[in-house]
Amino acid sequence: MKTNTLTPAKAVQIYLGASFGTCILIYTGVLLGMFVPCILFFAASAESVFKDPYVDLYLYVDLYIGLTVSAMVAALMQHTFEKTMPGGKFYRSLPEGFTAYRKMRLGMRYLCILVSCLYLGIICAANMVIPFMNHGTAKCVSVLVWLVHALGLADLIQMIPHGTARAVLSSLVMLFSGFGGVMMVYTGMWYVTVLLAVNALWLLPFSYRAMLNSYRSTRWDV
């Protein structure tokens, strides 16, 4: 029976309409689509805009990378599929009901991590061919760790009852994480990133369960 074989990837497809693979390609494509023109613009205007092109350009590029990927993850994590929103009742009428939602949330986490990995991985690879970042690999890994940690925080934020507060706080945490990952390498405080990686080991499963319990009791079928 299909209901026993619903994977997180299939659950994401039920909720988003497009297949998991297509979603990865689309979201990574959007990120790269935003990144490439901006890096070209930064490079073209470096001499005229920046006081110290070599230092400032690197910083802007790094921050821009953190900003784009964190904004994408924030947007994905804010899809909470409320009953009053289009599709809300369809999702709640599925045979697996809340189990499908639970699997979809897990699938969305995988999607965020995979898109971030792919995007940052492509940037790392490009940086090896045409250097535009100092310590590129370290920064990409650091941003990834901060974002993965922020996924746990975003799930905890989903437990806040007020919708606008949820959206604002979630966006701020994500953006802070995007910048934070870059700044930790700049400032040499890489140990903070290591601490976050360790913290994520318990935070991610804990926040996932807490968010699901809260969502089910307060927003799923009320």
Partner: peptide
């Protein structure tokens, strides 16, 4: 009942999986 960005093909895919 369905998300507004969906096409008939998306609906068929989601219904078939669900």
């Amino acid at each position: 009942f369905f998300p507004l960005s969906w096409t008939p093909k998306d609906i068929a895919n989601a219904m078939e999986l669900g």
